[in-house]
Design a protein around this nucleic acid. Structure first.
Lengths: 150, 150
DNA sequence: CTACATCCTGTAGCAACTACAGGATCAAGG
DNA sequence: CCTTGATCCTGTAGTTGCTACAGGATGTAG
């Protein structure tokens, strides 16, 4: 009988499929994360199969949540480093999140401009029974030659 | 003196660099569009260089505008086909644009949810001088184990 | 004639996966 | 013991819409 280990013991390891079901991350994606060094390589069974413990589950869930929030892989890498108990730095984490928030806001602004243009053009299309197509017109703005051809 | 032609005549051809400057599309991108069949392959000079006329300029400008509006390549292919004088179909064009508008709106909705979560979390971070990091907490929601470790 | 700009083809890389192909291994039933 | 089907393995190629070379062939100006 071995003495109790400091860490709760890896105990029962699960195969990749179970980790996948548990975290909602595709098997291929898990292997991909391992390959790019996002997820530490787990120990293997005698026959070479990956055996995961609870710590991988935690990390993977963290990654999945961060991805859902739109963080990029490299950013998540940074967050994971900052999340380690010994280097924990709320200020830096906040900075990263704030930068990401900025880029999300920029994307929203971009998309809103598109939305406006598209919706206005389409509205013109249903309202105005003009001979030309307003959508195609929009795409050909500034090119009178093409309208002559039609 | 020749009679006026229907099409303004290809006349003076320009090299790819000029087409690029004229349309604001990178040279590599122009060749890429040709390779994937978006832009018809132009005639070549004796030494094998591409020689472009005004019609390529029109098509390429159309593509660039559609890309700016967020249309995907395949969608633009469809639009180009529908824009041809002989197959012109405003109804179908409208349908495509409407579908695209829908997807733009869906993306905006998604991003707004993200924006809300991120901004609220970050606000909590500056307001609340809690021991734990709210951002990391958010990413670890539903996993009490990790908080014990910290 | 020699720079230097511009052009050519072809390949590889980006993000962040996804989808096989072609095997090996495992667990359960007969 | 053997077979069946699920699961796992590695490795490669595809996705989208380009961008960035490498390594060479022309074109143009002084």
């Amino acid at each position: 009988m071995r003495p109790v280990k400091a860490l709760p013991a890896p105990a029962d390891g699960m195969p990749i499929g179970e980790l996948s079901r548990l975290t909602g991350v595709h098997i291929e994606t898990i292997r991909y994360y391992e390959k790019i060094g996002m997820l530490p390589a787990p120990p293997r069974s005698k026959s070479g199969r990956r055996v995961y413990g609870p710590s991988q589950t935690r990390i993977l869930t963290f990654i999945r949540r961060a991805r859902e929030l739109g963080f990029g892989i490299d950013t998540i890498r940074a967050l994971l480093a900052l999340a380690e108990p010994e280097h924990i730095s709320c200020a830096q984490v906040r900075e990263i999140a704030a930068a990401h928030l900025e880029s999300v806001r920029a994307k929203i602004a971009d998309l809103k401009r598109l939305e406006k243009i598209l919706s206005q053009t389409i509205a013109r299309c249903s309202a105005d029974p003009a001979p030309a197509c307003p959508v195609l017109d929009m795409l050909n703005v500034g090119d009178p030659a093409i309208n002559q051809e039609f």
